[in-house]
Design a protein around this nucleic acid. Structure first.
Lengths: 238, 238
DNA sequence: CGCGCGATTGACGCCCGTCAACTGGGGTGG
DNA sequence: CCACCCCAGTTGACGGGCGTCAATCGCGCG
C-alpha cells in the first residue's frame, strides 16, 4: 500500500498505454494497480500460463523469451523501465506466448485483466493506445523476421547490438554506450537466430578492431557508426 | 454505388474487425466503404506509401510482401476473402510496411483512415476487435520468427505448407487439399527464408513420396499427417 | 578459496545458398 | 489458330558460412 503511493502518477503518463490521459485519470489508473517486487531470475509470467495480468516495469530490466518443445530458445525482446509486458497476451486472450524473466531485481505494476477491461471501458483512449503500441510492435517483429530470413549472421548481430544500445544504452566511462543490463552471448544468439559461439567469435573480432568492448555479461558499443556500417552494408571505407 | 449494395452486410459480420456489431451498425459501416476491383498483379497498397486506407478483401487472394533495399523479398502473409489488410499500418500510423499484391482478380472494400477513426469512435467495439486481431497476428509473427530462427529449412517449408492448406485449402479432385490460389516456389521460399531451388528440391522429394502433388503455381497436400510429422518432428514410422 | 557458469577458440563437416543449364507449358500476338 | 517466347520449375555441381563438438580459461559468487 505505501509502495503504491511511492509511484509518481506523472511517470505513468509517459507509459505509451496511458499517454494522453489527464492526471486525475492517471491517479485512478494507478490506484487499481498492484505493486510487486522481483529478484533477479524470477519470472514475471510464464509461457503457456493463462494471460490474466498486464504489467508495467518500473525498475530493473526483463527478458521475454519463448522456448520450443526441444529446449531451444528465442529472445523476443528486452523490457526497459516504463514499458508494458504481457499486453499482447492479455489483449489477444489465451495464454502468454513467452516467459518474462527478471535479469535484475525489478519492481512492476500489475493490472488483472478484469480491471484492465474496466479501465478500457472508462477510458477508451487506453484501447486506442494499446492498438497503436501493438501495431508498432508487430511492425518491429515483421522487420526482425525479414532480417533473420534474409541477412547474414554478422549483420544481424550488428543490428541487434545497435538496437540494444539505442533503446537500453547508458553512457560508459570511456565515452562508449554500455548496454544497461547483464546480457549473455547466448541471449544475443537467441535474439538473432544463431549460436553463442558465433556471437562470441564475432564480438571478439569487433573488439580487436575497437568497435566494441566486451566483458562478462556486459557489452559496450564504442563506434556506433562503424557498427551501423556493418548492419546496413555501407561501403566500408577503411 | 450499385456494387456496394451487392455486398451482404451479414458477411461483414464475419469479419473479425466488425464482429459483434448489430446488423444496423454493420449497414452503417458498409455504407461508408468504397468498392474497388483489382486485376491480377495490381497493388492494393505499396510499401512506404502513407497508410491512409484500410481494406477488407471480398473476393480473390492477396499476397503481402516486404522488400529489402537490395531487392530481396519476404512474404508476410496471404490474405483470404473477408480478411483485413493494412489494418496494422493504419492503426499504428506512418506508412504501409509492405506491398499488397493481387494474385488473382480481386474485389475489396476500402475505408479511409478518417472514416475508420470516426467509426471507432462511434463503435468502440471496433477498436477492441482490432486490438484483439493485431495481438493475435503479433503472436503468429513471433512464432514464425521462432521457426525461422531455430528450425531447419525442410521443417519450415512443411509448416508453411500446412498453414497454407489449413487457411486457404480447397478440396481437390483426388481427395487432397489444394492451395486455393496461384503460388510459386519463390513465394514459399520468401515465406520461409530460403531459396526457390531448395523449395523445388524439397517439393520434388515429397512428390516422389506421395506427400504432395505439384503443378505450375499449384500445390496439393495429399498426406497432411505425414507432412505434419515432418513439421513437428514426430518419430517417422515409414 | 573453490566451484560453476559465461566466455573463448580451434577443428571439422554439412546444410543449403549460389551458379548454371535445361525443360515445358501457357499466354499472347500475329 | 498456330508459333513463339517468356516465365516457372527442375536438377546437378560446388563451395562456404556457420552450426556442432570439444577443450580450456577466468571472473565472480557463495
Amino acid at each position: 500500500m505505501p509502495m503504491r503511493h511511492a509511484i509518481d502518477p506523472a511517470m505513468l503518463g509517459g507509459v505509451a498505454l496511458f499517454q494522453g490521459l489527464p492526471p486525475e485519470n492517471l491517479k485512478a489508473v494507478i490506484e487499481r494497480a498492484d505493486w510487486r517486487r522481483l529478484h533477479k531470475g524470477d519470472a514475471v509470467f510464464r509461457q503457456s500460463d493463462p494471460a490474466d495480468t498486464m504489467f508495467v516495469l518500473v525498475t530493473g530490466h526483463v527478458k521475454v523469451h519463448q522456448a520450443t518443445a526441444d529446449g531451444q530458445q528465442v529472445v523476443i525482446r528486452f523490457i526497459n523501465p516504463w514499458e508494458m509486458m504481457g499486453c499482447v497476451a492479455v489483449c489477444g486472450g489465451g495464454s502468454y506466448p513467452g516467459t518474462a524473466e527478471a535479469v535484475e531485481d525489478c519492481g512492476v505494476l500489475a493490472w488483472p485483466r478484469g480491471t484492465l477491461d474496466q479501465l478500457m471501458d472508462r477510458f477508451p483512449r487506453i484501447a486506442r493506445n494499446a492498438l497503436s503500441t501493438v501495431s508498432h510492435r508487430l511492425q518491429d517483429t515483421q522487420q526482425q523476421l525479414r532480417e533473420v530470413a534474409t541477412e547474414r549472421v554478422e549483420r544481424r548481430i550488428a543490428h541487434a547490438l545497435m538496437r540494444l544500445a539505442e533503446l537500453s544504452g547508458r553512457r560508459g566511462a570511456d565515452g562508449g554506450t554500455e548496454i544497461a543490463f547483464p546480457i549473455t552471448r547466448k541471449d544475443i544468439a537467441d535474439m538473432t537466430g544463431t549460436t553463442l559461439h558465433t556471437v562470441s567469435r564475432t564480438l571478439s573480432g569487433w573488439e580487436a578492431q575497437g568497435l566494441v568492448a566486451n566483458a562478462r555479461q556486459r557489452i559496450t558499443v564504442l563506434q556506433p557508426d562503424a557498427l551501423g556500417a556493418i548492419a546496413d552494408d555501407w561501403p566500408t571505407a577503411s
